[in-house]
């Protein structure tokens, strides 16, 4: 520990005032340890019994297969899926307030794109000053308390090496311009102090089969700047996140955020 850490250590000492007595906790630890040992023994015996039962069942099944079978297999039941509905709102948009200066700097315009918002996500259209469409920007927020493995699109199962932005924001940038119909600049950023994670993606016009029209209105560097801006993390409501019942309405990202 260094000099810098001393003030926190002193503060923590005060927090611990009023600590209750330990009593006979040491004996209680050893009683619990004996209980754990007994439980493990029981589990071991139970597992042995289960293995015996499985062997007996397998023997029974093998025997019955040698006899004529008249049973019919039960038909699988259809499952019912439910869909969730996002709750739109049209109050002042702090997310747009973060995006607008960057877009204005490129002499473009940005405006909400219907369906423009839901729980934990927003989407916007970008156009040039003549009104010609220049694609979309989609943003979603997640809560990822644990460390996440940032995906590597070309190597599933591997974790990308993260970059660091100020104030404890780790991020990875994904740029894909090979598919002329879906050119993407995306950044996934996670604030490690509270696990809030943002995915920000700019795409060009889709389905035009034209590399120029399909080019996103914002560059990868601009998307990175937006996604790592502390103001954007705080622009969503504290309880907003793209998970749970309403997550079906969240935008589909080129590189999805891996959720636990």
């Amino acid at each position: 520990m260094n000099e810098r850490s001393r003030p926190l250590t002193r503060l923590l000492e005060h927090v611990l005032e009023g600590e209750p007595d330990l009593g006979d906790e040491v004996d209680a630890v050893f009683r619990d340890a004996d209980r754990i040992r007994r439980r493990r023994t029981r589990v071991l015996l139970g597992a042995g019994a289960a293995v015996v039962a499985v062997i007996a069942a397998a023997g029974y099944l093998l025997t019955t297969t040698l006899m004529p079978a008249t049973e019919t297999l039960p038909q699988p039941r259809a499952t019912v899926t439910t869909s969730a509905v996002p709750v739109p709102s049209s109050v002042a948009d702090p997310v747009l307030a973060v995006l607008a200066p960057v877009v204005d700097g490129k002499k473009l315009r940005i405006f909400p794109r219907p369906p423009e918002r839901g729980n934990g996500w927003r989407q916007y259209s970008i156009a040039d000053l003549d009104g010609k469409p220049r694609g979309t920007v989609e943003i979603a927020v997640y809560h990822v308390a644990e460390d996440i493995c940032f995906p590597v699109p070309t190597a599933p199962g591997k974790c990308a090496r993260t970059e660091w932005a100020p104030a404890g924001v780790e991020y990875v940038r994904y740029d894909a311009d090979q598919d002329r119909d879906w050119q993407v600049h995306q950044t996934i950023a996670r604030r490690i102090t509270d696990g809030r994670t943002l995915a920000v993606m700019a795409t060009g016009e889709r389905g035009t089969d034209n590399a120029s029209k399909g080019k996103p209105g914002l560059t990868g560097a601009q998307i990175e700047k937006i996604a790592t801006d502390q103001k954007l993390f705080d622009a969503f409501g504290p309880d907003e996140q793209c998970s749970g019942p309403s997550s079906a309405a969240c935008p589909a990202f080129r590189v999805p955020v891996p959720l636990p």
């Binding site: 850490s5 250590t9 644990e146 490690i192 102090t193 509270d194 696990g195």
Partner: peptide, 17 residues
């Protein structure tokens, strides 16, 4: 208010040393 892992790092580094 900190994420559990962040809190754990601070406790282990600054309290437990």
């Amino acid at each position: 208010k900190l994420a559990p892992r962040c809190r754990a790092v601070l406790v282990l580094r600054h309290w437990d040393g």
